[in-house]
Every structure is written in C-alpha cells, then in structure tokens.
Design a protein around this nucleic acid. Structure first.
Lengths: 214, 214, 214, 214
DNA sequence: TATGAATGAGCTTTCATTCAT
DNA sequence: TATGAATGAAAGCTCATTCAT
C-alpha cells in the first residue's frame, strides 16, 4: 500500500560509495541535530554517538555545516522535490473526480512521508530560520515547482465548478493550513484521537468551506 | 483603536529597577537571538551590540540561558497569559452575536499583538524545540488556560446553533490553523495582498466550513 | 585562670576606628580563608557573608591581599610576638625549678592560645607556603626573637644539669616537634583521648629523652 | 644503595599511553602547583610552561582539578601505599634486633623517598586542607594500612621489652613527630648541620625517651 | 581510509577592582 | 562612609578543524 521511502535509509543504501562509518555519522548527526539543534550539537558528540573518530567526520564533510546540508539538502533537492512532483502526478493521473478525493489522497500521501521522515523534517523546520541558503534552496528548487503545480490543480477543480473562485494561492493556503494544523496537532500535541474520523471531519470542513457560493 | 502593548518596551519601562545598561542588553539580545538563534549568538556579540562590557551581562543574568528566559518567560507568564485572558474577556464581553464576529475580533486582536512583538514571538517559536522547560512552562501557565477558555467560547456558539457540533478541540484546531496559516503567510512569505480582503475571505471560509450541517 | 585572648576579637574590639562593617568583613574573611583558602575565596563571597557591598571591602582594604595581611600580620606582629615574649617572661619569671615544669607550662599556655585562635593560625599555616613576604615577616619579627629566647632558656636548664648537652637548637627542635605533634594529632585527627594523661606521657617522654647521659 | 624511585618519573615512564605532551603537562603542572598552589596557578601558565596549547591540557584532563588529582592520587594510591607497605616489609623482614635500628632504617628509607619526591609531597601537603576528597582518599587508602602496620611493629618491640608500655598510637605519634620535625627543619629551614650526627642524636633521644621505666 | 592528538580561537563565566552616586 | 553597577582582563573550558601517522 505504501511505496513511500525513508529518506535517510534511502540515501544510506542507495549511495554505494558511502562508507559504513559515513552511514553511522549521518544517522548519529540526524539524531542529535533533531534533538539539540545544529548549533548546540558538537562534532565531538556526533563522533562519539557514531562510534567514529572526530577526524573521520571531517574526512567526509569538509565542515560541520556541510554535514547538516548533506542531511537536509538531499531531502529537498533529490528527494522531496521529485517525490512530490511524482506523487502529485500519481495523484493527478488518477484524475480524482472530486476535489475532496484529491485532498484525501494528498493527506494520506503526505502523512506517510512525514511518518517515515520525522527527524529530517524536524531538523529542516528547526534550522531553516537560521540558514538563509537553506531557505533560498527550498524556495528555488522545491517551493516554486510545488506551488505552480498546485495552482494548476486548483484551477482544474475550479474549472469543474467544485471549488470557490478565490485566488489559487488563497485556496492553497487555506487547504495547506488546515492540513498542516492537523499534522502539527498530531505530531506535537500527540492527542489520542481517531485519525480516520479526524481526517474525515477535516475534509468535510474543507469541502464546505471551499464550496462555491451560490 | 489599539491598546496592545509591545512586550519588550513594556518590560523595559515598567520595571523601574532595570538599569539603563540592562535595557540595552535586553534589546540587543532580543535582536540577536531572533536573528541568529540562541545557541549561535555569543555573549560577546550581545555585549558589543548593547555597548556594555561582557561582565555586565552576567551581573544581571547569572547565565546566558537566564537572559533568554528573562526575555521569553515574561512574555508568557506575566504578559501573554493575562493579556490573552483579558483580551478574550474583552472579546467575549461584547458578546458578539455571531461566531464570525468573534473570529474577526480575535484575528485583529492577535494581529496587533504579533505586529508589536514579532521578535520575541520569533525567538519563542525558534527556541521552543530546544528548551523543554520553555515548553512545559508554556503548556502549564498559558496553554491550558487559553484552551479551556476557548472551549467555553466554542460551546457558547455551538449552543446558539451557529457552529457545527464537532468536538470543541477540533473546532479550535481548524480555526486556529486557518488563522495561523494566514499569519505565517503574511510574516514569512510576506505577500503583497490586501489584508482586509484576505481576512474577509478567511472568515467567510471558516463560517462556511463550520456551519452546522442541515 | 586563662588570660589568653582571642586575637581576632581583640583586634576587633581594641581598634576603635574599626567600623561595624569592617568587623563583619574581617570575621567573614577569616571564616572563608580558613575554609577554602585565600586564592579560592572571592571578594564577592566575603561581601555576601559579611552582609556588605563588595565596594566596602575595597574602601577599607586596598586589595584582597591587604585583607589577608590585615588578618594574619597583626597575629604575628602585634600579638603573637609580644604575647609570646610576654608569656615566656611570665613562664621564665616563675623560674620553674625543673625543665619539665617549664615544658608543662609552655604546653598549657600554647594550648590555650591555639584553642582561641584556631582559624587564624590555620590560615597562617595554609597560606605561608604561597606568600614569601609572610614567611619573611614571620622569621624577622617573630621567629628570631622566639628562638633566641628559647636558646637562653635551654641554656638555663642545661647549666642546671637537667638536660642533655646537645646544641640548643636541637633540644628546641626535639621538644617543639613533640609538642607540635601532639597539637597536630589533637586538632587534625581529633582523637578521643585524655588530654591530661597524654600530656603527662609526653612530658615524661621528653624528660627521659633529654636527660643528660651519665 | 637506594632503590627508591621518583614517583613522577616513574609515572611518566611506566605509563605507555602517555603522550609526550601529556608528560610535559604533568611536569609543568607539578612545578607550578608546588610553587604557587593549585588555585593560584592558571591552566594558561601550565600550558605555556609545558609548551603546549591550552586545549591540549583539557583533552587529557577533563578539568583542572583532574590534573591535580592525576598528579597526587597515583602518589598515594598506586605508589605511596604499596611502596610504604613493601618498604616496611623490607624493613621488618630484616627483623632488626633493636627498635633503634628499625627507626634508623625507617628514617633513611623515608628520607630517600622524600628527597626524590619533594615537589609532589609538597603539593600534597599544601592542597590537602582544601580538598576533602584528597583527605578521605589518603585516610582510606593509605593512612589506615600504614597505621595498622605500625601498630604491629610497636607491639613487636614492646613484647621484646625494648620500649615502654604506652598505647601503640602514642608511641607512633611521639616517634613520627620527632622524625617529621627533623624533616621539617631539614627541608624548610634548611640548616647547615651534619645529617648523620643529627640523626644519631635523634635516635638516641627516641631510644631514651621510649625506654621502659624500671 | 581512519585515527585521535593537537591546535588556538572563541566560548561562557568569574574576578578584583573602580567609581559615580 | 557605603553602595552596587560597571568594568575588562583573565579564568576554565569547548569547539571545529588540521594533520602526522
């Protein structure tokens, strides 16, 4: 049912010229960066946790920041981007009859992605305020493509008369906010709710909220 | 029209036993923490920016973390909490006939707050993942009170038949997500939109989305 | 029975131009220096313990070292010296018939002194390795006088045929070592012994050990 | 004639996993601690004197206090203890006919030890008042063993009727005081005396002083 | 390739001391 | 006289990074 992949594992396996040590470093660094933040994690700690010498880290990653980028950039550039696009195609290709079906597919799709890449996403969200390059990379390589794709989709359902004639970006924002609010609640507050029911209610809310005014 | 106050200024003026230097330290630290993050800001930088000796910082704040807390805790404990409560009273006391009027009042009220305290809120959001005490303090002193208040309010409008009979927390989440999505877009992406129109659309969306099903 | 005085109290009372604060500083500093050593005690700690402002210390004592000297020098220069001399006179004037009576008087006399000035003596002994001036002061102002006096006394009892014809300094060393060993055991190891009996045994040991060889 | 070893040299040579730099650090630290005291010696000074970077010190010794302990503890735990025991055995095994012969052997034995380890012993004596752990370590690991051994020995000579029937601890105290008084005079006052003669007189004094009363 | 000792700049914090009030 | 805020040098210590092995 799920063909989603864990980005980190993927990266580790796929890349054949990755040493065993290198894998260990990436895993350890991901763990620590997520927990304490990039700036507050020392290369010494990472080395210890990875069970390698400190020098080994710098043999593979010129600087500490390089290490961060090698965790977070692939997620965006190599994986997040293509995957999103691919997934969106997948979603669109099925040509869901109704907007609400499309939204449901999106939610489930992103949910699986999140579930498998929590740590890296967490690092990304935590560090993006402090690294302008990260921000720019994200906007340039991912953001723009995703947004333009979504605009098409919104237009598609608007032209079918299923959703209200607001600016596409507004529709996207309202929808995305609602979905991300759901994820935030789920992963930060961690409530004991029934996922399926909650998703149904959310979609019902979106459907009603975005229904064209008569 | 706005009686909102800038938290930092407030703190600086109100507290009579704050030295001039201490004020400068707080302003400089807020600036730097917001920009580079707590861990990546050195006390040396803060001292230079504040135009004081480094020792002066530690005369007033036992540790660097103390300095962070003395910026962020008052916001929560002394100011955010009471203000929210007071504001909510203000909002509720008017007993807005319609849920949408209440939401509009809330948006404007929080908008003003945000506008005047962007930096401190930014620090708070950026640092909360790395400081468990901050998280606990926030939940204990602020979160719980605010949520229980909002639950009352939702119940109020539900009993008037204005909004759908979902669990109050779900209603709150859907509403809050939408509003926060608006703020996120406004302050992060900084689009050139028409605030008033955007707010109107958002409220319309919420109203429709939360209308009771017939 | 005892006319011994507590050096610190003496100093505090006697000196009329000592402020109340100054007294508190001296008491606090003595306490801390004895406990943690001079170098490891901060003026801040002393100020807190004394209940005065840090500046007040430096109003009275130009430097931290000045404070140390003003505790330890009077003990030597003003008090230890004269007192020893005076006391020795007292002891000698009685012209104890036997050497052992003289020794006993000495032990009791020094015991009382120690008992009342443990802290200051402790500071003196602890700090003397690190402060050459202290060492020189002691030798110059106290040591020489005391030694030359003791040489006279030893000569006195040697000429009476009561003690062996060794160099006076050797006799002094053997006697002083024995007495100081007793004090060291008493104040450092703090054994549960009978003081009087122990002193009797010690004197008996000295008497036998220093008896002229036939 | 002497098989005594210099503790520090011993430590430095023996331990094969000691870096060259580490050796230099230990030598420099010993020098400085002896001269200025632990608290008054800065790690910066030690680094300069050792010709290493300051960071190097902390790579090998987690804290400055660690450095002190790594100089002083081995002396007690690994070396002083066993050596004393071993030496005492050596001394006892010869089963000196007379108590005075035993004492003489002891003096010479300890004299050699002192001569070769003056600095470390000096540090130990100077710092013990300020470091309770040091005190406890010493009592636990060294003091108790040495004392119980000495009690046996005293009993041995008492049963042979050579020394007076005082409590063994009293005999030990009187003897040790006399010997340590000799060492104190020798190493602190540094008199120009004839060692051998002085030792003979001291032993004669002890013998007479501890002779059983008829 | 991997190590880990070594570095020195820079970190947070402490300190004795000064000085305006 | 007494204060305590302010100082800046120096403390102990951490850090990312280098390099000989």
């Amino acid at each position: 049912m799920t063909e989603e992949i864990n980005l980190l594992d993927e990266m580790l396996k796929e890349d054949d010229n990755l040493t065993d040590k290198q894998r260990k470093i990436l895993v350890a660094a991901t763990e620590m960066f997520a927990e304490k933040g990039f700036a507050a994690t020392s290369t010494n700690e990472i080395a210890k946790k990875a069970g390698v010498a400190e020098g080994t880290i710098f043999r593979h990653y010129k600087t500490k920041k390089d290490l961060l980028l090698s965790i977070v950039t692939p997620m965006m550039v190599k994986m997040l981007g293509p995957i999103i696009i691919k997934d969106l195609n997948k979603v669109l290709d099925k040509d869901f009859e109704r907007f609400e079906d499309f939204v449901r597919a999106m939610i489930i799709n992103r949910q699986e992605f999140l579930e498998k890449n929590l740590k890296v996403v967490q690092i990304f969200l935590q560090e993006i305020p402090f690294h302008p390059e990260l921000r720019e990379q994200f906007i340039e390589h991912i953001g723009k493509k995703v947004v333009s794709r979504l605009i098409q989709i919104v237009g598609h359902y608007q032209s079918k008369g299923q959703i209200v004639q607001l600016p596409a970006t507004t529709v996207i924002r309202l929808t995305a906010s609602t979905i991300m609010g759901y994820f935030a609640a789920k992963y930060i507050i961690n409530p004991k709710w029934n996922d399926e029911e909650e998703i149904n209610q959310m979609i019902h809310f979106l459907k009603k909220g975005l229904t064209p005014d008569e």
